[in-house]
Design a protein around this nucleic acid. Structure first.
Length: 481
RNA sequence: GGCCCGUUCGUCUAGCGGCCUAGGAUGCAGCCCUCUCAAGGCUGAGAUCACCGGUUCGAAUCCGGUACGGGCUACCA
């Protein structure tokens, strides 16, 4: 039997990091078993639809490097793959469930339901449906259903126990008495998630249900549906949540949560994939840098951790640095491209790459590191320029001596610059870094960054001298402040 | 409140009864390298394995309870 798994996002916004992690696990599982991957859009809540969400899901998954076999745009034997386009299927199955006694029509208004809940809450009782419509004679109910607004509710047996042997969590069981009669088909004719997943998973031949931990509590409802239809229940695996720093499910409150945000911040897809895969799974060895293909090979469902894992930006940053350093210089240039202002000379950027590649953790950081090469608007702060070791007059003198040496340098190359500047330090009897620091600040506005000699060469003699001059003026009391 | 799940260094995790005086990574600190910052190398601090009981010759690992955290509890997914 070929493995068939699905990822089933709902188009309520752009792709969330947490669903990406779950999707990744589905992806690994499908690929390592030579199985098929199905993308199914679960848009049964018409109120929560967000325009453009499907595009963003496609964009995000494609950016991450995931490819799938069946889906809304690629089609497949079970099209359509958008639940809102499969309504008759769910309606038919809801009816079937009513026929076999697994569900019933309910005519209670939302008002009555709300009032019921309020009363129960006031009495500090469990708030759940009271089963009023369960007692209506089926024939009468069927008649009323022809004209009256109604929903279809699941008929949960009064007692007994239902259990699941989860591939990750092991044996889990629920007392049926704790479950309420869930709505399966809404009055607008749309199914709820519970009906739609089960029907689609069965009809689409899904062999393994792999989804987030938050679905575990509603699994007994699904199990009951599978059972009522008399279908074979596929193995289920729930995977732990991705948490925010406070231990709660990762959400916008915690900052960036969407793939596109991380993309915009200059993270590489390979780093995202690698880092994300490691929240909730470990190889069991001491390796942890894995490509997508390696993850497909190495990932094992039985090595999935049960506890939720917190999102750790610092660790992501480290992974991103690792992947940036793995790039070829031209590869890095390509990755950098979307972040570069159009007017920046790409030939210069290309030459700067070896200077920044091992220093940057994100593409944005890399771009910022070389911005001084293209803009004369470098910030200049007098106290930063002077530093702590020397008097302003001494710094000014060092600067002007350096300028003299630099001015007569021809050609203006990094080795010449190095030689000249080291000479200045010697003359001054300063440490090289002390003589070098004011120049770095004058030219880049910062105390840290790419190596100076090469940076100056790239900047060129004219601009270098102009900026040093500007710094001298600042120390003179005149000039820019 | 009810049901379910979870709990090993700050963080991600290894660990599936003896190899654990608990390993790796990240982060942090220090040293080396060095024109700065990184990268790289080395070193270090950091976990009474939530707690209490039990099983066992032996428990981070098995069982029970407690505490704490989380998820779910909608005509949301």
């Amino acid at each position: 039997m070929t493995v068939r798994v699905r990822f089933a996002p709902s188009p309520t916004g752009s792709l969330h990091i947490g669903s990406v992690r779950t999707t990744l696990y589905n992806y690994f599982f499908a690929r390592q078993n030579g199985g098929k991957l199905i993308l199914r859009i679960e848009d049964t809540d018409q109120d929560r639809l967000v325009a453009g969400a499907i595009d963003s899901i496609y964009d995000g998954l494609a950016w991450l490097g995931m490819k799938w076999d069946e889906g809304p745009r690629e089609g497949g034997p079970h099209a359509p793959y958008i639940q809102s386009e499969r309504l008759p299927l769910y309606q038919k199955h809801a009816q079937q469930l009513v026929d076999v006694g697994g569900a019933y029509f309910c005519f209670c208004s939302k008002e009555r339901l709300a009032a019921l809940r309020a009363q129960q809450a006031a009495r500090k009782e469990i708030t759940r449906y009271d089963g009023l419509c369960r007692r209506i004679d089926p024939k009468e109910a069927a008649d009323r259903a022809k004209t009256e607004s109604h929903v279809v509710r699941q008929k949960v047996p009064d007692d007994g126990i239902i259990a699941l042997d989860d591939l990750v969590y092991g044996h889990v069981e629920w007392p049926l008495s704790a479950l309420e009669d869930q709505v399966l088909l809404k009055s607008d004719g749309f199914p709820t998630y519970h009906l739609a997943v089960v029907v689609d998973d069965h009809v689409m031949g899904i062999t393994h249900v792999l989804r987030g931990e938050d679905w575990l509590p509603s699994t007994p409802k699904h199990l009951l549906i599978w059972r009522a239809f008399g279908w074979t229940i596929p193995p289920h695996a729930h995977v732990p949540n991705v948490l925010g720093p406070d231990g709660k499910k990762l959400s916008k409150r915690h900052g960036a949560t969407k793939v596109e945000e991380f993309r915009a911040q200059g993270y590489l897809p390979a780093a995202m994939v690698n880092y994300l895969a490691l929240i909730g799974w470990a190889s069991g060895t001491e390796e942890e840098v894995f490509s997508l293909d390696e993850l497909i090979q190495r990932w094992r469902i039985d090595h999935v951790h049960r506890a939720g894992g917190k999102w750790d930006r610092a660790r992501l940053d480290w992974f991103n640095g690792v992947y940036i350093r793995k790039l070829t210089p031209d590869g890095l240039l390509t990755e950098l491209e979307p972040f570069l202002p159009p007017e920046w000379d790409r030939a210069v950027v290309r030459k700067a790459i070896p200077l920044i590649q091992e220093r940057m953790r994100t593409l944005v950081e890399g771009r910022d590191m070389i911005a001084f090469l293209f803009s004369d608007q470098v910030p200049l702060d007098r106290s930063v320029l002077v530093g702590k070791k020397h008097q302003p007059e001494e710094i000014e003198r060092a600067l002007s001596q350096s300028a003299v040496v630099l001015r007569y340098l021809d050609p203006f190359t990094s080795s010449g610059i190095e030689h000249g500047l080291r000479g200045i330090a010697d003359d001054l009897d300063w440490k090289v870094k002390d003589a070098t620091e004011p120049i770095r600040v004058a030219v880049t506005g910062k105390t840290e960054g790419p190596p100076l000699w090469e940076s100056l060469e790239l900047l060129g003699k004219e601009k270098t001298l102009a900026r040093i001059e500007r710094a001298e003026e600042l120390l003179n009391g005149g000039g820019p402040s």
